[in-house]
Amino acid sequence: MLTAAVLAFLFVVLFPFYWIVLSSFTPKYELFTIPPRYWFSNFTLENYQVLAESIPLARYFVNSLLFAAGSSVVSVAAAFLASYALARIQFRGANVVFIVFVMSLALPQVGGLVPLFELFKNTNLINTYHGLVMLMSSLVLPFTIWILVPFLRQIPYEIEEAAIIDGARLPQLFWFITLPIMRPALVTMLIINFIIAWNELIYPLVFATSGSNKTLSVGLVELAVQPTAGGGRPWDLLSAMSVVMIVPILVLVLFFQRLIVSGLTRGAVK
């Protein structure tokens, strides 16, 4: 009974991935057969080749990488500083600021696009790397602060007090004491925010409109929604591009599974 349930679960979760991978290595003409083929036949890399020739795949890949890495670093840095103030220095109103931060999580991203677009146009931020990184870091900031504040509260005060008595100033205190203690939590949030930014669609779609700034997610939906001659979809290219998008994420999940789980569940279980 338990075994059957586990196997059913694995099948439902993994089969779509099998199907995408299979499609990506199948010649285009064989994708459109009835009934479909359930196993690799005429294994080919052609779909990947055609994909790399029809869109600037490498460019998009690098853009996604830089966008995700930049957003993850900026968001964790900003969240760390703010969380330190909120968790450590119990100034009047710290709790209110914390709650407002967390509640701003509920603001629907798409609801602010129009004013943001105008603002970005007037400040020449459209199609800029720093503009996109600002948007994305801000989007994941509330969740990051929500996770980091309780973590900071657990660090004993004596450790920092001792450093201050030894004459450490705040930058030194952060660098030599607080950051090393916080390392697991910070690495966790760096990875989680990287994944969220890598997957992000709306901001790059609206604010990275020139060819050289697009990310993989934008490239994928363009392939998926563009009108084609026969009305059908280029499933050969779409499945190949999906695989390109998934592989880096899978590597992260496999290496950092424990950290990711601890980060995602900390907020809910506290």
Binding site: P16, I20, N199, L201, L220, A224, S242, I246, I249
Partner: peptide, 10 residues
């Protein structure tokens, strides 16, 4: 962990 757009397309 995977992008929603990949799930949608797949």
């Amino acid at each position: 962990a995977i992008p929603m757009v990949v799930a949608a397309v797949g």
